[in-house]
Design a protein around this nucleic acid. Structure first.
Lengths: 251, 251
DNA sequence: CGCGGTGTTGAAGGCATTCAATTGTTGTGG
DNA sequence: CCACAACAATTGAATGCCTTCAACACCGCG
């Protein structure tokens, strides 16, 4: 039976893990985490490396410890679409079916905590709470995917770019890493984890169009770029309007 | 009646249900189905009626018995995007969270088998297999949503329309209701369950563009229209090529 | 310094949209 | 049965947004 609830039982790797409470591991109690930790090991990837492919079953599931992973689908003539982005405490892998219908590729340098397939699936069967947690995450993913469908199908280039930046800004606010507050009034700032090409593939645009829209947002004093990757939001409300979320009513 | 001794336990409504085996109910054994049936009742909607709204929690979950339901999201200025289509044995409602971030609207006349929220959630807690089944469906939905993101972001109008028709054609083949085989060689045919306007909202296009692309597919002898809703696929391979899935390689 | 990778900017063209008009379909009442 | 209205779908012409093609700027690195 389960031992006395004792934090000392938690493996040091997990105790020191930056994402444990927010990752799916947060659903587990001490001995559950022990059994998961027993099969886990860390691995890192460099930007551009393929982590999982749609061509062969993935041999592991994983938590993302740091970095950003892009999920991509492509057409035979080379056109590509990013169908999902995974950040730090997110889970990687399709439960129950080892086959995933997309590529998972490191967008930045990435660290993951990986669990071999068989072992993880056993644990998944054993602890329903874990499956439940995965289910809820999947539902959130689906919501996000639907938001994205609205963006891809109905928004203009300007709105697409603004929406994406807004998402990143909100993320930065939530995580509390708007580390870059030059001014007294704290502007939100964040590091873009993607190249312009990736941004284009995410938004269903071309590189050039993305670049032009960023320029436009700059000249509108809605955002400012410290460098190509570091964005400062000067006018959050303006960005929201540019994203097409709020429309001023002058009727 | 092919079933064994216990069949008598199954409520008549369920025994006669056309979708039972394929719906989530298929995951349940006899007494489970009894308890679900106790809280269930049928209801029908006319085309155009809103079934669930994002403004208030939905008071029930449901199986679709017949008809097609469209899930829509919109921008404040009226632009709309269909983010999902639900057909006959599909499930409706977001598990665990009664709030859904979209509208569910009857695209055709619809019949559903509805379960009050509280009761269904209790049963869901009680029978893990039911939750598991819902989870797997959610994963499939997510896959479909990602396919659609690729379509919305990267395909041309021609490819979009062709892809959609191809999906419907495949559905018709699977279900085995390519009822409309004029000729000896069986051409796939199906009834379009949407107006041109809905099609446009699904594909991220305008009504006019959808119409033009259908016309083009007609003049290319890839499809034929018996009437505005009844499509016959004359050249399935041609449709596949038009959809951008297969590209002939002349390299 | 030259080079590749990444990002920006400019000009021309194309594809989908917008605006507008017509045709086809359905249902209702005279 | 037909006229008529209301809606759905098609077709045409013109505009516009995004793409395509091309050139250039920027940056780190050998």
């Amino acid at each position: 039976m389960a031992d006395t609830a004792n934090t000392a039982l938690i493996p040091t790797q997990c105790a020191q893990c930056a994402v444990r409470s927010r990752a799916i591991c947060g659903a587990l109690n001490e001995d559950e985490i022990v059994s998961l930790n027993q099969i886990a090991h860390k691995r890192s990837y460099e930007a551009g490396e393929v982590i999982m492919s749609d061509e062969e079953p993935h041999q592991f599931y994983a938590n993302i410890l740091s970095g950003v992973i892009k999920l991509t689908k492509g057409l035979s003539d080379g056109r590509q679409q990013i169908v999902g982005l995974r950040f730090a405490p997110d889970f990687l892998g399709r439960a129950f079916g080892p086959q995933i219908p997309f590529f998972a590729e490191a967008a930045t340098d990435v660290e993951i905590c990986m669990f071999p397939r068989d072992g993880f699936e056993k644990i998944l069967k054993k602890y329903p709470e874990l499956e439940h947690r995965l289910f809820e995450r999947t539902l959130d993913e689906l919501d996000a995917a639907r938001d994205w469908m609205l963006l891809l199908g109905r928004k203009t280039a300007r709105e697409k770019v603004a929406s994406f930046l807004l998402t990143l800004a909100e993320r930065a606010q939530d995580v509390g890493c708007h580390h870059y507050d030059f001014d007294a009034d704290k502007k939100v700032s964040f590091e873009l984890p993607l190249t312009r090409a990736d941004m284009a593939d995410f938004l269903g645009l071309t590189i050039e169009t993305v670049s032009r829209q960023i320029t436009h947002l700059k000249t509108s004093s809605i955002i400012r770029l410290v460098d190509n990757r570091l964005f400062v939001v000067e006018d959050l409300e303006g960005l929201d309007v540019a994203a097409g979320n709020e429309r001023l009513n002058f009727d």
